[in-house]
């Protein structure tokens, strides 16, 4: 924030200083009012609803924390989200690294490929795996044609199909975050290690990789938060035995019409994701986006 003060404020004058307070307030007012009315107020009402719908009691929450169904669903959700996050990080790392060390045309080309799926609807990308992984799908056809298997493998409606689609959806964002973090690493340190006799693998392992770890943790937190809320992918490609929390909330709301229970489960999910996002914000401050901390 001090960096901003350095290059934006006019010389301190009394008249200017009160204007310095009013103008930004006027500029931010519509946006904040909008967010409060169309986002925060509905969330507050949902919170109230979770108590009111059950005769002003914690009944909905008692169900949440005691029923074996919700325990199982929460465990599945956390497990699936964790595995998807780890795989996405492992796959994104080499791509982000290559983006960092290559320049010009090659970097632009890879970035284009990374961004193409980002512009394609999640439903569409999920749907594509439904076609590829089916009994008559391309993967099974290839496996049978090459004689690796003789009967089609059951690739759909299990955690494999959910994970393969989830990771594909999460990858572009993971790559972009990691790439951003790697760009901030001072590359002269690697050159210095090489001058002092390190091989390129050793320079990577002892200098670049440790320096990139904070970026990996940051990307991991953000991607994990997003994977907790996945709905389309597990609903289309998963088995009913591995339901994730967003699907359960959807069923409570749209099929059972139990808005109190749906609201309570939604609120618990909201608290969990907000806490993780707050941890992210604490260590990888979000306002860096508008040059808050490193302009």
């Amino acid at each position: 924030m001090t960096a901003i003060a350095g290059h934006t404020t006019a010389p301190p004058r009394m008249a200017a200083s009160s204007r310095q307070r009013i103008i930004p307030a006027l500029l931010l007012m519509p946006c904040l009012a909008w967010i409060s009315f169309f986002f925060l107020l509905p969330l507050a009402l949902m919170c109230w609803r979770s108590f009111a719908a059950k005769g002003y009691s914690f009944a909905a929450y008692t169900v949440l924390f005691t029923s074996p169904l919700y325990t199982k669903v929460m465990l599945t959700t956390v497990k699936t989200a964790s595995i998807a996050t780890v795989i996405a990080l492992i796959l994104a790392y080499p791509v982000a690294y290559v983006l960092t060390i290559s320049g010009g045309f090659r970097r632009a080309l890879i970035l284009t490929f990374v961004f193409i799926p980002y512009w394609v609807d999640i439903i569409v990308r999920t749907f594509s795996w439904l076609i590829l992984l089916g009994d008559n799908g391309l993967i099974n056809k290839l496996l049978m044609a090459t004689g690796i298997v003789h009967t089609p493998l059951e690739l759909l409606y299990n955690s494999f199909s959910v994970l393969i689609a989830m990771v594909q959806i999460l990858l572009p964002l993971t790559i972009i975050i990691l790439f951003g973090a790697m760009l901030r690493i001072d590359r002269t340190l690697i050159a210095a290690a090489k001058i002092h006799g390190a091989g390129s693998w050793q320079a990577f392992r002892t200098v670049f990789f440790p320096l990139s770890l904070p970026g990996v943790y940051g990307a991991g937190l953000l991607v994990f938060v997003l994977s907790l809320g996945f709905y389309v992918t597990p609903a289309l490609l998963g088995s009913p035995r591995q339901t994730m929390i967003a699907q359960t909330i959807m069923v409570e709301a749209s099929e059972l019409l139990d808005w109190g229970q749906a609201s309570a489960a939604g609120l618990v999910l909201l608290i969990i994701t907000t806490l993780i996002a707050a941890i992210y914000n604490r260590y990888f401050s979000l306002d860096r986006l508008w040059g808050g901390s490193d302009a």
Binding site: L43, G229, A246, A253, S263, G266, T273, T274
Partner: peptide, 11 residues
Amino acid sequence: VTPPIVTAIST
């Protein structure tokens, strides 16, 4: 970062 299902039912 808010799960879409939460925004959906509250909205």
